[in-house]
Amino acid sequence: MQRRLVFLSAMTFLLPVVAGVHLFLGFRSTDLPQLLFAFAGSDAQSFEEAVLLYQRVPRTLIALYVGGVTAVCGFVLQSLVRNPLASPTTLGVNAGAALFLVAGVLLFNLDTKLQGAAALVGALSGFLASLAVAKAAGRRNDPRGLSLILSGALVTMFFTGLTNALLLSDPARRSDLLSWIVGTINHAYADRLALFWWVGVIAILMLLVLARPLTLILFGAEKAASTGVNVPIVSGLAILAAVLGAGSAVAICGPIGFVGLVVPHIVRPLVGNNLRISLPAAFLTGAMVCIMADLIGREALYPFSLSTGLVTDLVGGVVFILIIKRFYLSSGAQQGVA
């Protein structure tokens, strides 16, 4: 219990620090005192202030939202699917959202608002497609849920193929979508954040309210029901919230991979499986990971910048292998969710 509170408070303290570094790194130190006042004014008084207010602040907020929401949704999906490899990336959620958004832009010329709606519908479709494939493949005989992960990979490949075909068919407009499709935290997407932030907020509030019954579902459907949990309704609502939350993140800045997969594995050993504590911890950690990934992408190869999605894909891919090794290939591999 002690360690959990220490971790939570450490993250609560560290997140503003990392966000501060993300905001102010690169400015001349002599400018910093004056820049702090930029938040008080209504408009930018200098070039530096403009950079801070119109580039850095939106970027930090987007990273905070996307990282936090994706990590919480990943945690919930891993709990409900009972598989350590579950996440928005591996269950077809991200690929579905990306396909529907790209199709919406290229085929139907949707405006930004409707693009978001398309991404949410796409996120749900991707997840349902993975479920359907897994069902056809006989998921009932697979208690560890691996078939669902493989189906998710299949759906992701199929949807990504379609997305690429759409992009290739429209050379004139594809450059607009190219950096979005690899997952980029960019100040240009600030208007998308302004449009869709409430989706993630509602999703997270819903998941926090459902945290205790969701934790009980970890004990198995029958044990949960015997303690008074309405399992079909709770898990249905939670999956809906998690998928839509993750979809809203994709709608803002494209699929940022692996945050939803990796962060739960960082959080769980430190704060445990009680979702009342682990969901807030996942939010803080996810936000921090995403801000740091964006910082690395921005500063590592300066003056060139890497897409945040590329950074998380590179790091996440390695961690993905470690998770497979730990849960599936090691002797005495652990059962279900760690």
Binding site: L218, F219, G220
Partner: peptide
Amino acid sequence: IAYLPQECFCPDYMT
């Protein structure tokens, strides 16, 4: 009514 199933599964790290 409370129920103790034949096989119980506890998530890791749960105290």
